[in-house]
Write a protein that binds this DNA or RNA. Structure first.
Lengths: 258, 258
DNA sequence: TTGTATTCCGTAAATTTTACGGAATACTTT
DNA sequence: AAAGTATTCCGTAAAATTTACGGAATACAA
């Protein structure tokens, strides 16, 4: 959505194509080189940063909408995307405050009754990707983007700081239960790679040997016969996710026996 | 909503009061006497059973809407109600198939463009209550209700069987993490009471002594000095939930250290 | 040949979870 | 009053899991 014509059509007629009152907010965790970051977009006019998001087409399954929105923004497909909460306790979470402000900021003439000004509940999704491989697409409303360190998130639009916090909590809670990381690591990876991913996401150190034992005993990864030559003195064994275990996990999560 | 006038107004003008395209479905688990049941309503006209639910008022916080809907239906207030998933992958989850069928069934004349016929996503909530203490209120659309055993749920409207399954899975997963049961047991309860509650919900036997040790060591319950006289040979000690631990749990869940 | 960086294990201790039975109490019945 | 019965109340030993921790072997570089 970049040309003025497209934007105009979206603002004026979007309610015909999309479900009103509902949006999807995506918390895209980007991991690379021992750093966990979140993708934020800068909205023109507003001085704030916000989460990438979008609307659900009227006849589009919800999860498909979440994938489409993420794909449009990052070009990433087939990600593990997880719905984690609906935010709707701030009933006045409006996209803008008034038609006049909107006109001033974007130069688009709209009525006070425009669909974008109505109350919007937001469905939160999160994903974990390798941010060095993502090329972010901006658009008319969001001309800039940046990956922010999770420990240093700026004040966000609306209640989105709460959204990010809840996403992070859910990510950490589920990292041993859901195939988070499947889209992140290469198909074959070393212990060191997955180990530092987990350390970074959880924000704490994990004993290497015990970590490997645990993941193998949970059946999530298996050791391959191959080694990778990555330099002098370095040819660690490769590991791979256990496909079946992951598919089970995708369906039902890994259930604990209490 | 019982009088014809009220119903008419709801059907014709509900979209002015409520957010369209969104509903709340409540899975109300009822426990009593070692049995775990679910409250289902029988819809007139349709031959199916369905979950109690409702709509969100245009300026009403989401969680407040969930409480209101439950309260209107059961008279229960201040419950622990937990949002667990948004269902929106069946894009054609319509309330009815057509205006004509609607008119035939309910004797109300409506247009094909009525708000009730539009696509509706549903936000699932669940609660756990003592079903012997609930007096269910029916209305124009739902003239009958029944508590069904969880192992014997009939085919439900739309995709609601999936909703129930997911609610049950979430309930079991969270029973040691969230203050489920807080609204269920009396303020002071015996070990036998909470023990059989957990056994019933989880659908398996739990060793009494270990169970008590675990709940106490988790800090969820504490033993009181009082005993309860419930009959010959019977005056077990009473236990109580640890208020602070529960409040923490309410806020963030009880987090495991992996 | 020596030195250095890197990978690869395995075991002992601590903790947690599980399994399991018998003693004491208080009332009821005879 | 005594014996019987139903109920509550522990505690410990074994098993499983989790945690802590260091040294030997390898492969290249100097």
């Amino acid at each position: 959505m970049n040309s003025e014509e497209e934007v105009n059509d979206f603002v004026k007629n979007g309610h015909q194509q999309y479900l009103p009152h509902l949006s999807i907010d995506s918390v895209i965790f980007g991991y690379h080189d021992q750093q966990l970051k979140i993708l934020l977009l800068k909205w023109i006019g507003l001085d704030g940063w916000g989460l990438p998001g979008g609307f659900i087409r009227r006849r589009e399954p919800l999860s498909q909408a979440a994938h489409r929105i993420l794909q449009e923004r990052t070009s990433l497909e087939d990600l593990f995307l997880q719905q984690f909460h609906v935010f709707g306790d701030s009933p006045y979470r409006l996209q803008e405050r008034s038609a006049r402000e909107f006109t001033e900021k974007y130069g688009l003439v709209v009525g006070d009754d425009n669909w974008l000004f109505e109350r919007t509940l937001s469905i939160g999704y999160f994903a974990l990707v390798d941010y060095s491989k993502v090329s972010v697409r901006t658009d008319f409303f969001t001309t800039d983007y940046r990956w922010w360190d999770v420990s240093d998130i700026p004040p966000l639009l609306f209640d989105q700081n709460e959204v990010v916090e809840k996403a992070l909590a859910t990510l950490r809670l589920q990292i041993y239960h859901q195939p988070i990381g499947l889209n992140l690591l290469p198909e074959k990876f070393t212990l060191a790679e997955i180990h530092s991913l987990y350390e970074t996401v959880l924000g704490k150190e994990l004993d290497q040997r015990n970590f490997a034992k645990k993941l193998v005993s949970l059946g999530l990864i298996k050791k391959l016969a191959e080694q990778r030559a990555i330099g002098p003195h370095r040819s660690p064994y490769l590991y791979q996710f256990e496909k079946e275990a992951y598919e089970d996990a995708l369906k039902q999560g890994i259930v604990h026996t209490y």
